[in-house]
């Protein structure tokens, strides 16, 4: 899969991020499938809920709110009426670090994927275009496109969904929940010509903010705060899972005690009557103990994967900005003091 944004779409996403900073912003993308494997995104709208900042604690929560679903549906209808004929192609999210990896985002994407999978003709995967506003504020171009990974789709279709056995079979880990796909921006010769007139040539000090020492500090502080919070959630989630594991091992212990007790009884029976038939012995197979014991069901590991994915992305972001800082500082140090 590959995706292409119109230049105006990329700009609008950047503007939406700037307008709602430091709150997240999101919205639907509409475009034209060129081939089953490539989509041109021509229109973007901002979700109405972007304007109420108070209930946006969870990123991408808004994908499924009724207001936004209605909005998305109505926009699509109008685009079709206006004979633009664009199709719903995905969402954009202006976010920071790995915050966009949430259960809600993944579940929404899965839900839409399943709905679309039912239709007869093959439709391109829905894309999630992520723009990092904090990086853009440093003067970096930061757009990434993700689709659901085949591993995640496979696991979601298995029985019992996100249990450890299935994760192993599908080889799903926290690092491949989403798959990054190539993203380009469409360059119209016309727009190219227009750009020459639009942007002044001067090397402005503003866009070189990435060169300033320590300029990523504020963004990193936010990331570290987020990281601490996510680690807390992660530990909580891990604690729940350990509880399940303790419960499981206690049950398993009781079962093995029960099995060995029955085996002893069988041995005693055989001692008394060496010719005892199988039907006279007590059964010890799993079919039998299932009647007497109930193993706890394994909780879904999805939340754990999501939290791990977030922590991983936060750390990646920190390493990235620390690397840039180190490169800059060492450059300055060598030049000034050696």
């Amino acid at each position: 899969m590959s995706y292409e944004l119109n230049a105006s779409v990329a700009l609008k996403i950047a503007r939406s991020g700037a307008e709602h900073w430091p709150h997240p912003a999101s919205g639907p993308l509409f475009g034209f499938p060129e081939t089953p494997d490539s989509v041109k995104i021509s229109h973007v709208f901002s979700f109405p809920t972007n304007n109420n900042h108070h209930n946006q604690n969870e990123e991408g929560f808004s994908f499924r709110s009724n207001v936004n679903l209605d909005f998305q549906e109505r926009t699509l209808q109008e685009l079709n009426k206006a004979k633009i004929g664009a199709q719903f192609s995905g969402w954009y999210l202006c976010s920071q670090g790995g915050r966009f990896i949430t259960q809600s985002v993944l579940e929404t994407m899965l839900q839409f994927h399943n709905q679309r999978a039912k239709s007869l003709d093959r439709q391109p995967e829905l894309v999630l275009v992520v723009h990092e506003t904090s990086k853009a504020r440093q003067g970096l171009v930061s757009f990434k496109a993700y689709i659901l990974s085949p591993q995640l789709i496979q696991t979601s279709q298995m029985r019992e969904k996100f249990i450890t056995k299935n994760l192993r079979t599908a080889e799903l880990t926290f690092s491949n929940l989403l798959k990054e796909v190539p993203l380009t921006v469409r360059n119209l010769s016309l727009v190219g010509g227009a750009l020459d007139g639009l942007i002044p040539d001067d090397v402005s000090t503003e866009s070189e903010r990435i060169l300033a020492l320590g300029n990523s500090t504020q963004g990193d502080l936010n990331t570290i705060e987020q990281l601490l919070e996510t680690v807390d959630h992660f530990n909580h989630n891990q604690g729940n899972f350990h509880y399940y594991q303790r419960l499981l091992s206690r049950e398993q212990q009781r079962i093995s005690q029960w099995v060995s007790k029955r085996e002893q009884e069988n041995a005693a029976t055989l001692k008394r009557n060496p010719n005892a038939t199988e039907s006279e012995l007590l059964r010890t197979d799993s079919y039998e103990w299932c009647k007497h014991f109930k193993l706890p069901t394994e909780p879904s590991r999805l939340e754990n994967l999501v939290l791990s994915g977030q922590i991983d992305a936060f750390c990646e972001g920190l390493i990235n900005s620390a690397d840039i800082e180190i490169a800059k500082s060492i450059g300055v140090q060598n030049r000034l003091f050696n």
Binding site: E4, A7, A10, L11, A14, R15, G17, A18, E19, T133, K135, A136, R137, G139, L140, V141, S142, F143, K144, L183, T184, V185, R186, N187, V191, G192, L195, D196, L198, I199, S204, E206, S207, N320, S321, D323, I324, A327
Partner: peptide, 27 residues
């Protein structure tokens, strides 16, 4: 906005390409 500016400058540097790649790497 400043956000858009870095993007516009990026487009401008790549006017000759039919498809402008998005830089993958901050470095």
């Amino acid at each position: 906005s400043a956000n858009e500016k870095s993007l516009l400058a990026h487009f401008k540097n790549n006017v000759v390409e039919p498809k402008v790649p998005i830089p993958q790497n901050d470095t």
